[in-house]
Design a protein around this nucleic acid. Structure first.
Lengths: 341, 341
DNA sequence: TTTAGCACTTAATCTTTCACAGTGCTAAAT
DNA sequence: ATTTAGCACTGTGAAAGATTAAGTGCTAAA
């Protein structure tokens, strides 16, 4: 891959990103000061290398999946966020009242808005949270609410109907035992410590210990499973992209975006590096062969999360990366200012 | 409108609902034991009356908005829920573990699934709830969580950063005052009683009373505004309907279903009768001229809500009504069994 | 290596044709 | 007074061809 060939591929990818139309040899002559025939020769080589494709024998070229991959890896220039993009996001961070997690959501809404891609915020509050206390609020003789609170201020609650043979006081007594034993325990370890350490203790002190135990066990489990928030913005925005100018394709994607485990697939960022923006092109996304997902982990105040943008493979990589970088940077600086974590 | 004409309109509507294709005169001959010419004569009259329409001069007839209206008002027969439909919903109510509000959501998911329409559950927990207690949980010297709990077991929480000149104990003291004064107050009246009754009291007893007051005021306000849940099922299901076999129409609806205030428009059920299933056809829906919304209010355990189904105007009115009736009935019986409310 | 030239390919668009499903109207039949 | 048969007419939709535009690959010369 000599320099001209690299530049040619770069140009093809970028023109295609901009126009969504296959790129022909003529269109590139002027840029490279040579004839269309020369370009064609080079294109033939790029095609042999698998970086570009033809839709049919006489069509212009379109980047292939590995073409995009090569582009983001070696050709894409670090793009600075544009002034107007920055301006729109700045407004959000200017407002210090906004809680950080709301600020993230708002940012992604705006990104979705200005780019016509779909964006996702997945927040997982449970990680890095330690149990602060579990309290019992009695509604009446037969109903109680268990409220679980962590040291990071995340709260989750669950209501229970008590069987008639269980007294509210026993529940409260149990909660006191748990508080004494488990304060400070990482929230996702609480369940197992309940089983191994707490259960034997309350077995001795509480009459109907099985039922009582289950109430608390359920409440903690609920915490871990419920305490994640999901925000999808602009589900319909992505349909504005010209690749979805087709009923079948449109329905297919609409269904996928609706699918319950869509979030899961989009945000399997567990293995992502904490500090890196990752790009998953087409099949790499494991969500849909025709989209690209760009995502970044974040970590503020004991809330782990992922922000992600979903667009066509022909998405504006440079712009999205610059936008996500900006958001991330702003979050970092706010985090420091708040002085927590 | 003599009987034959009524039956004719009924048949046209029902055939069109089933086939989504304009209904011609020939297709109805056998059903009415007369020639197509006779049917045509009658059709011309129905068209003059505004109940049916033609797409073009030589097409079959399609019900008009007022045709559908007339149909649901006078012609539609009370349909009994079909066995297979019932079976699918029964599974949900068989599971007594499920909380009622979850059961509703599940039901609507299933309805969306089996009918290919979109469904919505809007729950408003705040109505009919009375304040049980507000508790303060201190995370550290500068952060507290206010937990508001109602007698129906609805809990909402909000975290606050304390300014350095405010002591946690003052917050706790305030919470005790509030609890003493306001227990049992309907949750949506709490804000105003805070202003008129509580504020003067804490003004005397608490130093930085303005800031402290605002914390609680905000927490209560949050309760009222946050304590509504929205579930939309099968946003993409409705696209399977043949009327959305067109990119522009599909995008239009996708955008509307995405729109933030879509829920609001769909569920403006305030003026609906508590016990009646209401049908809003086309423009009547105030959401979109090309859809019908069928909805029903529900009211269980201090949770007001609305369930709604959104489909094309050509939706299966009888079936949806029977499904919603069934769900409502089951909710009622569960409500009695639980013995609350 | 590059380029001009040319034959060839395909998609896309437009036009024409044609059958079909349906209508409205008239005049005869019941 | 209704109902019906018959017929001319109309818009749709699918199929078939014609035409154009964009772009390619290859060859041979520069």
């Amino acid at each position: 891959m000599d320099e001209r060939r690299n530049n040619l591929l770069k140009e093809i990818v970028e023109v295609y990103i901009k126009t969504a139309k296959p790129v022909g040899s003529k269109a590139l002559c002027s840029k490279f000061n040579c004839s269309s025939a020369t370009i064609r020769n080079e294109m033939a080589i790029l095609e042999d290398l698998g970086y570009i494709e033809k839709n049919h024998v006489s069509s212009g070229r379109v980047p292939s999946e590995s073409g995009y991959r090569y582009y983001v890896e070696y050709l894409m220039e670090a793009e600075k966020i544009t002034g107007s993009d920055m301006l729109k996001l700045q407004k959000i961070f200017a407002n210090n009242e906004l809680e950080l997690s709301d600020a993230i959501t708002k940012c992604m809404e705006i990104i979705s808005d200005i780019t016509n891609y779909t964006s996702v915020v997945l927040g997982k509050s449970s990680a890095d949270n330690n149990l602060l206390q579990v309290s019992i609020i009695a509604l009446n003789d037969s109903q109680v609410v268990a409220v679980v609170c962590t040291d990071k201020g995340n709260v989750e609650n669950k209501m229970f109907n008590l069987p008639s043979n269980i007294n509210v006081n026993e529940i409260i007594k149990t909660s006191e035992i748990i508080n004494k034993m488990l304060v400070g325990t990482p929230i996702n370890e609480v369940s197992s410590r309940m089983e191994t350490e707490v259960k034997p203790v309350i077995k001795r002190q509480i009459r109907q210990y099985e039922t009582v135990y289950n109430i608390f066990y359920d409440a903690f489990n609920d915490f871990v499973s419920n305490n994640s928030s999901i925000h999808v913005s602009g589900r319909a925005k992505i349909f504005e992209q010209p690749e979805y100018n087709d009923v079948a394709e449109l329905k297919r994607l609409a269904n996928k975006l609706e699918d319950a485990n869509f979030i899961e697939k989009v945000s399997q960022a567990d293995e992502d590096d904490e500090n890196e923006i990752k790009i998953y092109i087409g099949d790499e996304s494991e969500f849909d062969p025709n989209v690209t997902i760009i995502r970044k982990k974040y970590h503020i105040n004991g809330e782990y999360g992922t922000i992600a943008v979903i667009g066509p493979k022909r998405m504006d990589y440079g712009r999205i990366v610059s936008l996500l970088e900006y958001v991330d940077e702003k979050l970092d600086s706010r985090k420091e200012k708040d002085g927590k974590d």
